[in-house]
């Protein structure tokens, strides 16, 4: 009898029939991002209230993690950017931001703006150095325009 009551107890506890979990906040196709550098196009897009949308994430999983390169649609143009801050739950000691931040770059990895006005995670120093190849794009230029590291 005890077991039957216990079963009933548990069953009723979970009887909702729905499984609800916290959302993952992943950066994927059509996610809206926040441009955090002072490039002209980025500033205008944010001021107009039309933040850029992700149209491609350049990795195999197609889910953007910190330091990943993305292709965004911004004011009718296609621009590349680097994710420099995510809402998603991060590893220990990696900062988690309240918005998904992006810095716009061109094909060579040179940032379009001259200044980033939010803090940048220090882990990007390692990640971007790894992604940079001797003859390819140089992403470490982004680090030199950052104002603050956390």
């Amino acid at each position: 009898m005890f077991r039957s009551v216990l079963n009933k107890f548990y069953y009723n506890n979970l009887s909702c029939g729905l499984h609800t979990t916290a959302c993952l906040n992943e950066v994927q196709l059509l996610t809206r991002l926040r441009v955090v550098d002072n490039s002209e196009i980025g500033k205008r897009a944010m001021a107009e209230g039309k933040p850029p949308k992700v149209i491609c994430v350049y990795n195999k999983k197609r889910i953007g993690y910190i330091g990943d390169r993305v292709l965004v649609a911004i004011k009718g143009q296609k621009k590349k950017g680097i994710l420099v801050g995510l809402k998603q739950i991060q590893n220990v000691k990696v900062p988690k931001f309240d918005s998904n931040n992006v810095v716009l770059i061109d094909d060579n990895g040179t940032p379009l703006g001259t200044r980033i006005h939010v803090p940048i995670p220090t882990i990007l120093r390692t990640i971007l150095k790894e992604r940079t190849h001797a003859k390819g794009a140089d992403y470490t230029k982004l680090l030199s325009i950052a104002t603050k590291f956390v």
Partner: peptide
């Protein structure tokens, strides 16, 4: 909140 941007860090 640093530079109007909320930041959270988890530490062990």
């Amino acid at each position: 909140v640093v530079d109007h941007q909320g930041v959270e860090i988890r530490y062990d």
